[in-house]
C-alpha cells in the first residue's frame, strides 16, 4: 500500500490494513481464494457461517440468477466450528490478513459456546454473529427480528470471549435501527449490515419456485441502494463502527458505503463472478484516494454532505 495514503482502519481495537473485507458465505474459509491471489492484501475476510455441529444445507435448487444479482438458499451448509479450528485455521496462519469468524447459533447458549471455542485462537481477530440468515426455518433469523433476542445473543457471546463481537443485521425488518440500538446497548463492538433481502423467483413453465427453499436471500448490485440507505440510517443512530455490505462490485460502490458511514466494507457476490474482485476494489480505492488528495481513508467515513436536504 502506498505510503502517501493511510488505508488502514480500526474497528474495536483491531487494525485492518485496508477497509476491504469479504462477506461470510462468499469467501469459503479463505483458502479457496489463495489459489487466485495473495489474500494477505485484503483487510480481512469473514468465514462461512460456523455452527456447533456441521450442517448439510438445503436440497438442490439453491441458487438462481436474477437481474443484477442472485437469490440463494444454501441453508448454512458448513463444516462446523471444530473442523474449522482443526482443518482450516492452521492453513490461514501464513496469511497476514484478519480472519473474522462468522458464527451462527440456534440459541444464545450456542452463540456463547461458539464464542468460547474460538476465543483461544489468535488468528481469529473478531467474531461476527449471524443473526440474520433468511434461509433456515429454525434459528438465526428470529434473533435478527427481535431486539430482545438479538441483545441476548450479543450478551451471551460477549461474556464468552475477549474478542470483539460484530453483529450482522438482517434488512428484513420494519426499522433496522431498533435492532441496531439493541445490539449496541447489549455490548456489540460493531455492526455489519446488511445480510440478504428475502426474495423469490418462479419457473413459469413448471409453475414452481426456482429454489427448493421457495424463498432465498437476494444479493448483488440489485440491493446496493437499499443497503446504502440502511447503512446511512444506522450509522447515524449508533456510536459503534458500522461495516457496510450489499452489492459492492467496484471501488465506487465501496466509497458510497463509506461516505454513508461505514468504517469498512465487505465484498460478497462479486467474489463469485471474479475471485479477485475484493483485491481490485482495495487497489482501486487507494488509487481513488491518491487521485483526489485523500490522505487518510478514514476522512471519508460518514462524510456525507446533506447540504440543505432534510435528513431522514
Amino acid at each position: 500500500m502506498s505510503p502517501t495514503v493511510n488505508m488502514s482502519v480500526e474497528i474495536a481495537g483491531v487494525r485492518f490494513k485496508n477497509p476491504v473485507l469479504t462477506a461470510s458465505g462468499t469467501f469459503g474459509y479463505g483458502i479457496e481464494f489463495a489459489q487466485f491471489f495473495d489474500i494477505s492484501l485484503l483487510g480481512g475476510f469473514c468465514t462461512k457461517g460456523l455452527s456447533l455441529a456441521p450442517m448439510a444445507g438445503n436440497p438442490p435448487g439453491r441458487i438462481v440468477e436474477t437481474p443484477a444479482g442472485m437469490l440463494n438458499a444454501i441453508g448454512l451448509e458448513n463444516i462446523g466450528v471444530d473442523r474449522f479450528i482443526l482443518e482450516k485455521l492452521p492453513l490461514l496462519e501464513p496469511y497476514d490478513t484478519r480472519v473474522i469468524a462468522n458464527i451462527l447459533g440456534k440459541t444464545s447458549e450456542e452463540f456463547a459456546e461458539l464464542a468460547r471455542r474460538l476465543d483461544p485462537f489468535d488468528k481469529v481477530s473478531a467474531l461476527e454473529l449471524n443473526i440474520s440468515c433468511p434461509n433456515i426455518k429454525q434459528g438465526g433469523i428470529h434473533f435478527g427480528h427481535d431486539p430482545r433476542m438479538a441483545a441476548q445473543a450479543v450478551q451471551a457471546a460477549k461474556a464468552s470471549t475477549r474478542k470483539p463481537v460484530w453483529v450482522k443485521l438482517s434488512p428484513n425488518v420494519t426499522d433496522i435501527r431498533i435492532i441496531a440500538t439493541a445490539c449496541e446497548d447489549a455490548g456489540a463492538d460493531a455492526l455489519t449490515l446488511v445480510n440478504t433481502f428475502v426474495g423469490m423467483s418462479i419457473d413459469v413453465y413448471k409453475r414452481r419456485p426456482m429454489l427448493s427453499n421457495v424463498t432465498g436471500g437476494l444479493s448483488g448490485p440489485a440491493i446496493r441502494p437499499l443497503a446504502v440507505r440502511l447503512v446511512y440510517q444506522v450509522a447515524r443512530s449508533v456510536q459503534i463502527p458500522v461495516v457496510g455490505i450489499g452489492g459492492i462490485i467496484c471501488a465506487q460502490d465501496a466509497l458510497e458505503f463509506m461516505i454513508a458511514g461505514a468504517r469498512a466494507v465487505q465484498v460478497g457476490t462479486a467474489n463469485f463472478t471474479d475471485p479477485t474482485a475484493a483485491l481490485k476494489i482495495a487497489q482501486e480505492l487507494e488509487r481513488h484516494c491518491e487521485k483526489y488528495g485523500i490522505r487518510d481513508i478514514n476522512e471519508l467515513v460518514g462524510s456525507l454532505s446533506l447540504g440543505e436536504k432534510t435528513p431522514i
Binding site: 469459503g28 481464494f33 462461512k48 444445507g57 438442490p60 441458487i63 463469485f272 463472478t273
Partner: peptide, 13 residues
Amino acid sequence: RMACGFGVCLGCS
C-alpha cells in the same frame, strides 16, 4: 446451477 465454479458459493449441491 452454480455461481462460482470453485467451491465457495455452495449453490451446486
